[in-house]
């Protein structure tokens, strides 16, 4: 009886692991997040690096971030048919920081806080009606004690 219970638990654990794994692998664009350059990240995420700068993409971030560990970044857009909003920090080891997929009802306006290793361009990429639009802003990072 003890054996069958153990077997059952082991089986259940294996099944749970199997179920959890594909979900994590399928949903999360690992290649894009592990990419070492902005272009590679965009290629992995969108299949193209073709994007045009647009005033309809509004990126707000500080001019100077005293603490690179917590840099507030907001992206909004007035474009129609926004499918996703992605934020790239060009000089980070892995430039893609976050990507937001908008479902029905979601407003093209998101805010979060990011880590920045050093002064860098921050690029907001908005995908609307299958096309990519960007806004770029340089954020100066002054990190005390890290040689910044």
């Amino acid at each position: 009886m003890g054996v069958s219970r153990r077997l059952f638990l082991r089986g259940a654990a294996a099944a749970a692991a199997l179920m959890a794994l594909p979900r994590a692998l399928l949903a999360w664009p690992e290649k894009a997040f592990k990419a070492g350059s902005s272009d590679d990240a965009m290629q992995a995420l969108f299949g193209t690096t073709d994007a045009s700068a647009s005033s309809a993409v509004v990126l707000s971030a500080p001019d100077i971030a005293e603490n690179g560990r917590v840099v507030p970044v907001s992206v909004s857009s007035t474009l129609d048919g926004v499918e996703s909003i992605s934020i790239i920090v060009e000089q980070n080891p892995s430039p893609l920081a976050a990507s937001f997929d908008l479902g029905p009802g979601a407003v093209a306006d998101v805010s979060t806080r990011l880590k920045m290793g050093k002064t860098s361009n921050v690029i907001a990429v908005v995908k609307a009606d299958g096309k990519l639009y960007t806004a770029t802003k340089e954020v100066k990072v002054t990190i005390g004690g890290c040689g910044g």
């Binding site: 976050a98 979060t112 990011l114």
Partner: peptide, 28 residues
């Protein structure tokens, strides 16, 4: 919202510790 997916955020490690995430939903 009421069990219907409104937004999915995919994050890398560059999102700050104790993440802050703000968004808006229409039709609520």
């Amino acid at each position: 919202l009421n069990g219907k997916l409104v937004m999915t955020a995919n994050w890398g490690p560059a999102v700050s510790k104790n993440p802050y995430f703000a968004f808006n939903i229409n039709g609520a």
